[in-house]
Amino acid sequence: MTKTSNEYLQSFIEFLQIEKQYSNYTIEYYQYDIEEFLKFTNEQSIEDLKDVEYSDARLYLTALHEKQLSRSTIARRVSSLRSFFRFLSREQVITENPFLLVQQQKGAKKLPSFFYEEEMEELFAVCEGEEPLQIRNKAILELLYATGIRVSECTGIELTHIDFDLSVLLVKGKGNKERYVPFGSFAHEAIERYIATARHFLMKSADSHSFLFVNHRGRPLTPRGIRHILTKLIEKASLTRKIHPHMLRHTFATHLLNNGADLRTVQELLGHDHLSSTQVYTHVTKEHLRKTYVIHHPRA
């Protein structure tokens, strides 16, 4: 019996979870993008995914532009659908991928946002306090800034992943790839203090587990939980900008390069497979140098 479109979508989600081992956060985007396309196919009276053609894909791209979505959002939608139909082709549901030849026009690459060092100091200042949650929040902020790890990687840290003697952290990244990342004295002190004075207090009402960061009920923190904590810290520090999950990761990379770190080392610390993913930060640092020059040079 032929599956429905939603059943094919569910099979694809299971593929991403089990075979690709993508994070829940990434899978949510895939699911949303594909569900939006399925709404479009219903509007176009396309009842079977086998009937989707290249012309339909082009029409959908036009519809996205008419909604005035950003280039990055449209590119992500096309990429999600290309992967979905590639999966359907692999499963022999379809014979040709209608999104294979769809190209989204590339615009200027948006430079990643980051915090200046003065802004980081303001964030650390609002974390100060003796309450268990304040101690935890400072440990989270110190670790994210010290290591540049992803928020999803931060929530996966277990107590046994931390080597305090060497100040090194075992990180499990995308596709369950492992890497070791060093952390400095500030993060070392903040994490030790959190484990010694706050974590056991927060764990009182929860079953025992080995995850490092927990919520007020003692349960493992989720990526959404950490994003909420960071947003509250921004509000408390009265910084006039919005924070997104990767912002501290961008800050980590930018500050390293601004202070003379080489690109290959930053690539390894970030866990990037390709140097091109890291090179975007060189544009950030060049822009930072240019602005500094214009402000301070008498003949700029």
Rank of each mutant, 00 (worst) to 15 (best):
L143P: 14
N137I: 01
T41E: 10
A57C: 12
T240Q: 09
I149E: 04
I229A: 06
T254D: 11
I140L: 15
H272C: 07
A237L: 11
N24K: 09
L239V: 06
R76M: 04
H255M: 06
H255K: 12
F114L: 06
L100C: 03
R224N: 09
A57Q: 12
A139Q: 11
I46D: 07
I34T: 05
K236M: 06
L263H: 04
I229C: 13
A190C: 11
K177I: 01
L221A: 02
D165L: 10
H288P: 12
G225V: 03
V266M: 14
D163S: 12
R224S: 05
K138F: 13
T231I: 01
G260E: 03
R264T: 04
L159H: 05
E121T: 03
S185D: 04
C127Y: 08
R227L: 14
K242H: 12
I13S: 00
K177V: 02
L111K: 08
H283Y: 05
S210N: 15
Q279R: 09
K286S: 08
N259K: 15
K110D: 00
P182H: 04
H297W: 07
R219Q: 14
A261Q: 11
K50E: 04
R227I: 03
F12D: 00
S208Q: 14
M1N: 12
V126D: 01
F252K: 14
D262H: 10
K172N: 09
T73M: 06
H288I: 01
A253C: 15
A237E: 13
K177C: 02
Y32Q: 07
H250L: 00
E268P: 01
H288Q: 13
L9S: 01
F85L: 08
I149W: 12
L9H: 11
S70T: 11
P298K: 07
T26M: 08
F252H: 12
S210H: 15
S11D: 15
F40V: 02
S205K: 12
L61T: 07
P132T: 02
K39C: 06
Y8D: 00
E36T: 00
P220T: 01
T251E: 01
Y60V: 02
Y281P: 01
T240P: 15
D262Q: 06
D56M: 10
G184P: 15
